[in-house]
Amino acid sequence: MQEIALKGFGETVKTVTFRIRRYDPEKQELPKYMEYKIPVQMGMTVLDGILYIKEHLDHSLSTRYSCRMGICGSCGMIINGKEKLACQTQILELGKDLIKVDPMGNYGIVKDLVPDLSNLFRNHEKVKPYIIREEEEPKSEYLQTPAQREEYAMFTDCILCGMCLSACPTSATDELYLGPQALAQGFRYISDNRDLGFNERLNVLDSKQGVWRCHFSGACSEVCPKGVDPALAIQLLRQVMTTNVFVKFKQKGTANAPERKSVSGVS
């Protein structure tokens, strides 16, 4: 049985051309494409292909990777025109003889396939991705039922790969836009019943470059490797913002809802 399953494993199935966009910061040149021919074995991912090039063909190729199994979110890149994690994309499943690999868009390029994700982390920091309470030191545990956890659990799966910002057509032209990742995390903390920081986050989320900049093209949810569905989070966040104008937003699980200081910031 095992022999059948392993049949053909380790043998070269076909040769595939990788067309990789290269950029060397030490040379005063614009990025250009370079082609490499690599033998493909069964079960070989795009990341394996890139590492093969690095080992055998061109040692100067740079990429960023860590876990090789879709957990760390380091190897996001544009493969044949769509954002994908290189470690999760099988070469044979793509079914093409030419595989075009680009670094993620809407970020700076540090070198070759390494994007400069500082913008992503800055935006993530802006929405205060931590639980905000009035007291400095917690006196006891903050209680939460499994049902209350379900209300935001899916958004905690974000691995910060940054592919949503690369796919987002709004981020393509607006540098200040918070982006799907940060907005989804904002919603995740607002809908957490232990959190009281709604008003503190309001001026960041409820701004021109915040939640209202989204046009719901759904590209972020389409490319998300963990099924976080940031587009859903943004629309639900909008619902919170619009209802907040008429009905005071009550944070679930808290005895007293936080005071609504101002809604004049709604634009």
Binding site: E150, D157, K226, D229, A231, L232, L236
Partner: peptide, 16 residues
């Protein structure tokens, strides 16, 4: 739109 749900493997976004 759906309520927050648990994503399952093929990870097709339910909001779309």
């Amino acid at each position: 739109l759906p309520k927050p749900y648990r994503p399952e493997f093929p990870y097709k976004a339910k909001s779309l």
